[in-house]
Simulated scan of single mutants.
Amino acid sequence: MKNGLIFKNHSHKTLLGCTLLLSLPSFAEDQPLQDMSDPLAVYSQAGVGYTDKGINIKFGQAYDTGEDTTMGMNIIEIKGIAGEEFGWNGEARASNDNSIDSIRFRNFGVDLTNGRGTQLDVEIAFTDNNGAQGSASYSFMQALPKMGPVNIYPLAGVGVAFGETFDGQRQGDAQMSERWDLHGTFYVAGLYSKIEVTDKIWLNYNPMYLGTISGADNYKQYGMQGDDTVFLHEASVSYQFNTRSNIRYYANWSENERYRNGDHRIEVNYQF
């Protein structure tokens, strides 16, 4: 059911995505090309992905932080466009409509003197069963010294979960309310990692462990995929065509979901 206070129909979702895109700062001028395999690299970019739940589009814009030792970047992603029409997963196509599945906004900051980064990550997902549900987190990352072909970037942060609520005791008998609630808070700890295979091919594995901290009893006990904690996995294989473009295959799954039943996508990225 998608009749929340501000996300009442598909056009509102699209309007929100367009508003976020227009709010991004201007492309950084005269920005040197960055290593697109580096999780802490900051650069202006665009990408399009073909996923099991539809089409994804991504825009990233680097901006001037006002300091020579830092760099900043905003990224907006609109996911699951026309999932019923284009998604290759039959089950996902049956459960999705031809609107969008979720919207994600991230802000990255990097200190060039010590390899430390920050990440603001906001995502809102639209589902028939739970209405619009979102999360916002703020994390710190640190690049560790390279170990042969391996780079590791530990991450830790905290966040809040929010979204539409149901009236009534049982979800099956409830109606979506016209109210958005702050469900509770959570922590996240994990890492980004990169394994260099050749100068054009690399692998990434990004495990994340999340757990509830505070909030309503229902959220604290079941807010992480039916439990109070969850272990998430993301893996990718990438090939760099040239200094400006690459193609990447991603898979996302969790301790409660097999790899083959997770989210899969093929994404092409271009650096401006």
Rank of each mutant, 00 (worst) to 15 (best):
40 L>I: 02
50 Y>H: 06
159 G>Y: 03
14 T>Y: 14
69 T>Y: 09
3 N>R: 10
183 H>R: 14
22 L>P: 06
226 G>I: 04
183 H>Y: 15
262 G>D: 02
59 F>P: 02
194 K>T: 15
163 G>V: 08
252 N>F: 01
86 F>W: 14
238 S>M: 06
117 G>Y: 00
112 L>E: 11
271 Q>V: 01
130 N>K: 08
132 A>W: 00
177 S>R: 08
124 I>Y: 04
140 F>W: 15
2 K>H: 11
145 P>Q: 05
195 I>L: 13
29 E>Q: 11
131 G>R: 00
85 E>Q: 11
145 P>F: 11
55 I>S: 04
88 W>I: 01
181 D>Q: 12
148 G>Q: 12
78 I>W: 01
209 Y>I: 14
261 N>A: 14
269 N>C: 05
165 T>A: 05
133 Q>S: 07
194 K>L: 09
84 E>L: 07
36 M>I: 12
229 T>G: 05
191 L>E: 09
269 N>T: 13
186 F>W: 04
137 S>T: 06
27 F>T: 10
182 L>H: 10
141 M>W: 05
98 N>M: 08
44 S>C: 07
215 G>D: 03
54 G>W: 00
154 P>E: 08
87 G>W: 00
6 I>A: 01
38 D>E: 11
77 E>G: 07
116 R>Y: 04
53 K>D: 08
201 I>V: 14
184 G>H: 03
261 N>G: 11
228 D>R: 07
48 V>Y: 02
91 E>P: 00
73 M>F: 01
83 G>C: 06
24 L>H: 06
129 N>Q: 14
258 R>H: 08
215 G>R: 00
259 Y>W: 14
167 D>T: 15
224 M>A: 03
1 M>D: 10
226 G>E: 01
28 A>D: 07
149 P>Y: 13
236 S>R: 00
242 N>R: 11
12 H>N: 12
14 T>A: 10
76 I>Q: 05
98 N>S: 14
30 D>F: 06
122 V>Y: 09
229 T>C: 07
96 N>E: 13
55 I>F: 08
258 R>Y: 13
114 N>D: 09
258 R>E: 13
264 H>F: 04
72 G>R: 00
140 F>D: 02
61 Q>W: 02
129 N>W: 08
208 M>R: 11
258 R>K: 15
232 L>E: 08
148 G>Y: 15
203 L>Q: 06
268 V>I: 13
271 Q>A: 12
255 E>R: 04
220 K>P: 06
37 S>I: 12
260 R>Q: 12
12 H>I: 07
3 N>F: 03
201 I>D: 10
210 L>T: 05
204 N>L: 01
13 K>M: 09
270 Y>L: 13
78 I>M: 11
223 G>R: 03
142 Q>R: 01
58 K>L: 14
218 N>K: 11
87 G>R: 00
148 G>W: 15
46 A>G: 15
99 S>Y: 02
192 Y>M: 00
265 R>N: 09
153 Y>P: 05
157 G>P: 10
84 E>F: 09
135 S>T: 15
115 G>T: 10
126 F>Y: 12
17 G>I: 05
103 I>G: 01
162 F>K: 06
